[in-house]
Design a protein around this nucleic acid. Sequence first.
DNA 1: GCATGATCATGC
DNA 2: GCATGATCATGC
Length: 452
Amino acid sequence: MDQAQSLLFCYNQYMTQLPYDLTSPQSILQFAAGLSGKTLSQAVNLVDTLENVKNKGDLGTMVERYYFGYEPNSTKGPDFAEAGVELKTTGVKKASTGKYKAKERLVLNMIDYVQLVDEQWSNSSLLAKCRVMLILFYLYEKDVPVFDRRFVLDPVLFSFPVEDLAVIQRDWETIRDKILAGKAHELSEGDTFYLAACRKGSGGVGEKLRKQPFSDVGAKSRAFSLKPSYVNRIINDFTSEASSLDITDGSIEAATEQKFQPYLGMAVDDIALKLDFHKKGKNDKGYYSNLTMRILGGKKLVTAELEKAGIEPKTIRVNKNWMPKEAMSFPTFKYMEIIDEQWEDSKFYSKIEQKFLFVVYRYDENDVLRLEGVKYWNMPYSDRVEAQRVWEDTRRRVGVDASDLPSSSESTVAHVRPKGRNALDVLPTPQGTMLQKKCFWLNKAYIASQIR
DNA sequence: GCATGATCATGC
DNA sequence: GCATGATCATGC
């Protein structure tokens, strides 16, 4: 064994417990997200000697070996066979508009001219390998070694949308038909729309041409690939900028607030246009919350990342006098459980102990709703004492008569109110009745006093 | 206009 | 299928 192999051996021994579930695409994706905003050498402890630095190296191979901890294969099936996921690592460039664009086509797999003519689309080797792909995007920079190139977009677990699949199948058949006609040597990327037969191989004068089944003319080797324009669509539709909350200078607060900066003072309708995220109807109750999540995450929601960072965003709409339109709800509690709980073990306790990010939208003098500002907030101690009193009063009263719980007139801070899918969404009570689900709420006037 | 009750769309 | 964030709806 040379040094690289022996190090790798130790590494694999150490990694017998992989930090992700090999059989679960979601788990693999989640683990891949750990690369977001980082370079490979930041993500794993790479020893320079492991790879020949002068050799430009293949980032995809290195990611498989050192990040995911398995030895790259060139089998026909997907890289993560159990999960049916093929790993792709591809470069992007930053366009003058600031958006990321594909540096080049995304190569899927080599075309075997002889074998292809015997395949049907449904049993094609292309589909077998690339039905689901985990795509990682790194920023291409010419003179930077591959392991120092940064993964700039979130990874995408990609399967072809059905409407695209129809086009791709036609493209695939177009390519196969050309080989059937003995014209493999005439293949061109321009023959097709999304899927293309791109040149792949050494090229040049000494290139060994490949055999094709229905002609004696040798053909240059080609691979199935997704055209750059198609990769750009994947980037636009499925990614958001990585490191949106990847904290480099240690301040989660600053990183988060920065995300809101461009939208401060902007009318909600304009934010909606800019993010291309629109209210689905009068009853789209999650809209402002989701809009907030998209300001933070671009085209996708970012709940999980925020949770990890210990941030709970709360969207508050206020009128021009800064009075919230609504009270603030928390998770429901179970009547049969709360009676045996201690305050410090309760969900409400853990909620109000944590830090919130208040995202305030305000109706201006002309009744236009605008993003007014964001503010980190924790509940002051004296109010937590009052919240505890309300909670303990609730626990006591659930035991007596669960239908009579603290209302908002009984405390300046919190009250109890229904919160369920509908009137049929009920839970058992100690009295043997079924009662609508309820939760703790922070009073409207209390929130008003806090955002002032 | 406010307190209270009822419910919606969404993500996991 | 359900918890969740949040808003809508209603009656006083």
